[in-house]
Amino acid sequence: MTPVLSVRDLSVRFRMRGGRHIAAVGGASFDLAAGECLALVGESGCGKSVLASALLGLLPGNAQTSGTAVIDGIDLLAADERTLARTVRGRRIGLVPQSPAAHLTPVRTVRAQLQETLRELSGTPRAELRAAAVAAAERAAFPPGLLDHYPHELSGGQAQRAATALALVGDAPLLLADEPTTGLDRDLVDRTADELRRHADGGRALLLITHDLAAAERIADRVAVMYAGRIVELTGATRFFGAPGPRHPYARGLLAALPERDFTPIEGMPPELGALPDGCAFAPRCDRADDACRAVPPLRDGVACHHAEEAARA
């Protein structure tokens, strides 16, 4: 089956003052199929949000990209703004934003925003807009009784659903959820995650960008761990969260830091993206580092480490 999204060797660099460069994303490659959820996890500043912005064509002017990211025959990294605006954002990629309250237009009701998006993206005739808006709300489990509310009158969970309803309108084959659960309490995290999963089960591809490992564990089929701009592990969610567990030392440390596990932090902090060490970026914090780690480890068999934990015997 052809993947919905195919990313190859995607890199993003920012040109800074004084000729400096920041390597925000380095050589990311992955495929994402219909009906599948891939969770991209990592700490703030690891490059996962930059990767999302690159897919949506929303990088700032000083960004340089290389590689390809193909959806439906369109290379998102090469497409011009007109193509992205008219055929990609909303139509091929639906964005479930990080702060829905900020994403919704404050001075317009949810109904007005849904109807406008419906008119724009699906050309729904005026006479059918009302019914279509109700249907769109219901798809995202947004209570139709609240359609005439303004964003500030909604709770966090309701605003998240309104934003999801908007993201679903264009029937985009790929849903990109950028930290959709930040600031929500656990029940709402679970509900939001489950609803996103439902849309994947309905046949969409779902790219979940999050620092919340519990949300990833709940709904992801595969997990990609990012560290200092690179995907250091890409593996099945069951293996990752269950047995045998992650194979990359950073991914192992991240899981072990959870309060339901060891609750011990990984010593130190990630390197500056503007001053990455030669070789493996995790080496200064890694207790397995040796001379071999002076070369950047390629992602092989789903892990980028010279001394990865053994893959479990079959």
Binding site: G42, E43, S44, T182, G183, H211, L213, G253, L254, L255, A257, L258, P259, F263, T264, P265, I266
Partner: peptide
């Protein structure tokens, strides 16, 4: 807003 390791730290 923080990842698991920074939280534990």
């Amino acid at each position: 807003m923080l990842d698991a390791s920074t939280t534990a730290a």
